[in-house]
Design a protein around this nucleic acid. Structure first.
Length: 643
RNA sequence: GCCUGGGUAGCUUAGCGGUAAAGCGCGUCCUUGGUAAGGACGAGAGCGCGGGUUCAAAUCCCGCCCUAGGCUCCA
């Protein structure tokens, strides 16, 4: 046997023999580590402790104190679910059952499950855990494996594709149950301390809606019941800050049954949106955009030229209909309209970049099951903009936009994740143009020193895209801002400028949205702030609370003086304690409390939603502070910070 | 669109074959209060929509709409 060298996480090297397993190597390092070994990470890949090593590699030993341990445990939990399912529903066919960031799922076929079934399976799974069955790796030769899955075309497909070259094939067995699996797994089912089945949903075999519909069961598992309880409590807390719930409590917006996916902004929600609009206008001006306004209603012909028609209408995503023998539609994007504006005069290379912005109302017929509060809607307003540039201007144009995006997101304290999305199957235009455009975006991201993930094949049909993603309360990622480089639509619509050489050239189009859509962006920040908006955004910035009704006149005087802000007076005949409680519930940044004492001295008492307070505050001082705080877009009320 | 939940007063929820219940909110009155819930009374719901079963349906069955979480798809 030939010697191999394994490199440990601390950089040290160890000699081993080819054919030794991860566990053998752990024993070489130390007796204790060997005993505690659950699995290994070899060259970045999580593998079973029984995995034989055949060549030089980097290795990391996974024990029950490693981060990867939870992954391994959850993978075993998926098997426990499958075992419980098979005990109760022997006809169910297993397909795949991986661990995920939050837990695990298993996709099964041939069985309909509802919540009562889930409860029974949960009870059976708990028994399996209590039985503390040993989990062991076994191998079958290919023939045996195919025979074992005689009645299961899904597992046979896996054997023939993913596990094509493998013979023997790896299985894991616990009690009477065994499942085709590379592993790794924990040693026994008893290691699972907390196990919970959460959701049933439908999925498609290999994620393709042309394939069989499978039943997917989601669950999660932890080492201890306490950790599971904490996790469930966290999910409940996330529900508390759900933007749809906050919208009702704070009276921000509604999406009634008569217009699914279309938002009705209430005065409070509109106040926030107007602040956002003002902010975006300011930034658009800084970037040199000129605001335009284009119609929602157009002939379908427009999008047939631009290429939107085949990508939206033919997927059923565009609202379109026949009228007097002509097909009309609601715009799904603004690019074609802006391009028309560009095309109404002859442009010189000296004119470029030519930049148009619009708060464009667009409509997309999203599938009904996809709608989700403000985060996924059918009618939305993009803070859209298109810059028509010469090739030599692409780089600086994109850089400027990225810089502004970074600055803006800083003002919301939002953590964002950058994505570079590349050419997909629906792409129009040549590969060469695509790679030019992709390089331009990649260089800009690198130029700004931003970390980004590459998502292959995820781009829009006309060009690659930088997506700026944010997370919601449940940790789901949503794209908000975006920057896209497009060499294709200008060609399709035959947009030109006259170059220095007196020849016509196609400009490059930079599509961008800074916040994305006002809908999704608001959804994200409502949850991000948990409704506690910075003062500049808060629908109600100050609430004046009179101690008793006798102080109402003075309260009005104080409120009038703050007239340029969004100020309300609490005029219900409640106790001051009740008024304060209500103002906290409504998350108002500042409460101004006025009673006989304040009135006599011509001062106010100020309390903020962080429960800080000060008495004998002079009225001009508070107002001047508000001017500064709002102007500087502080994230939290700062008047009482130093007091 | 697909699967599993859900839709009862403005909101949150109870009721799950025998002609609708609570808390909050709202209205009126009493209380005029000093830093996170003062009190009394009252109004308010053909129980998502349409069919059916039954002497009787919020409750059971069928269809549809909306909604939540996933799947597929996108800002």
């Amino acid at each position: 046997m030939s010697d191999i060298t394994v490199t440990l996480p601390d950089g040290s090297e160890l000699d081993a023999e080819a054919g030794e397993t991860v566990e053998d190597v752990a024993y070489r390092i130390g007796e204790g580590l060997g005993r505690d070994t659950v699995a290994g990470v070899v060259d970045g890949e999580l593998v079973s402790k029984d995995e034989p090593l055949s060549e030089d590699c980097r290795i990391e030993i996974v024990t029950d104190s490693s981060e990867e341990y939870l992954d391994v445990l959850r993978h075993t939990a998926a098997h426990v679910f499958a075992q419980a399912l098979q005990r109760l529903h022997p006809d169910a066919r297993l397909t795949i059952g991986p661990s995920t960031d939050e837990g695990f799922y298993y996709d099964v076929y041939g069985v309909d499950l509802d919540e009562d079934d889930l409860a029974e399976i949960q009870a059976e799974a708990e028994d399996i855990i209590a039985e503390d069955l040993d989990v062991e790796r076994v191998t079958l030769d290919r023939e045996g494996a195919l025979e074992f899955y005689e009645d299961n075309p899904f597992k046979r497909e896996i054997l023939e594709e993913e596990a094509a070259g493998e013979d023997p094939v790896s299985f894991y067995r616990q009690g009477e149950f065994q499942d085709l699996c590379k592993g790794p797994h924990v040693e026994s089912t008893g290691e699972i301390g907390g196990f919970e089945l959460l959701e049933i949903s439908a999925s498609y075999w290999r994620g393709d809606e042309e394939n069989e519909t499978l039943t997917r069961v989601y669950g999660t598992a932890f080492e201890t019941q306490d950790e599971l309880d904490d996790h469930l409590a966290m999910l409940a807390a996330a529900e508390e800050r759900d933007h749809r719930k906050l919208a009702r409590e704070l009276d921000l917006f509604s999406i009634p049954d008569h217009s699914p996916g279309c938002v009705h902004y209430h005065p409070n929600g509109m106040a926030i949106r107007r602040e956002l609009e003002d902010y975006v206008r300011e930034m658009n001006e800084e970037l040199g955009y000129e605001e335009v306004r284009t119609p929602e209603l157009n002939k379908a012909e427009l999008w047939k030229k631009s290429g939107h028609y085949e990508n939206f209408r033919e997927n059923g995503e565009m609202f379109a209909w026949e009228q007097d023998d002509t097909e009309y539609g609601l715009k799904p994007m603004n690019c074609a309209n802006h391009s028309h504006v560009y095309d109404t005069s002859t442009r010189s290379y000296r004119d470029l970049p030519e930049r148009f912005s619009e708060f464009g109302n667009v409509y997309r017929n999203e599938q009904s099951g996809e709608l989700s509060g403000l985060l996924r809607v059918r009618g939305m307003t993009q803070d859209d903009g298109h810059a028509y540039v010469r090739p030599d201007q692409i780089q600086s144009e994109i850089l400027n936009i990225l810089q502004v995006i970074e600055e803006m997101y800083g003002h919301f304290g939002l953590e964002v994740i950058y994505k570079l999305e590349t050419r997909g199957e629906n792409a129009i235009g040549s590969e060469e143009l695509w790679s030019q455009a992709t390089d331009a975006l990649r260089d800009a991201l690198r130029g700004e020193d931003l970390d980004f993930d590459v998502e292959e094949g995820e781009a829009a049909f006309y060009g690659p895209k930088i997506g700026v993603n944010a997370r919601d309360a449940l940790g789901r990622e949503w794209t908000i801002g975006t920057v896209q480089a497009d060499f294709n639509i200008p060609r399709r619509l035959d947009l030109t400028y006259v170059g220095e050489d007196n020849e016509e050239h196609h400009p490059v189009m930079i599509h961008r949205a800074l916040l994305g859509t006002f809908e999704r962006f608001m959804g994200v920040i409502i949850e991000h702030f948990n409704g506690k908006f910075p003062t500049w955004l808060a629908p109600e910035q100050v609430r004046v609370l009179p101690i008793s009704d006798d102080n109402l006149d003075y309260a009005r005087e104080v409120a009038d003086e703050l007239g340029e802000y969004r100020v309300e007076i609490e005029d219900r005949s409640w106790t001051i304690g009740k008024k304060i409680q209500q103002a906290h519930e409504d998350r108002v940044p500042y409460m101004v409390i006025v009673g006989g004492d304040e009135e006599a001295e011509n001062v106010i008492s100020v309390r903020d939603r962080m429960e800080r307070e000060a008495n004998d505050v002079s009225r001009p001082e508070f107002r001047e502070h508000l001017d500064r705080e709002v102007d500087q877009k502080h994230l939290e009320p700062t008047f009482l910070a130093g007091r």
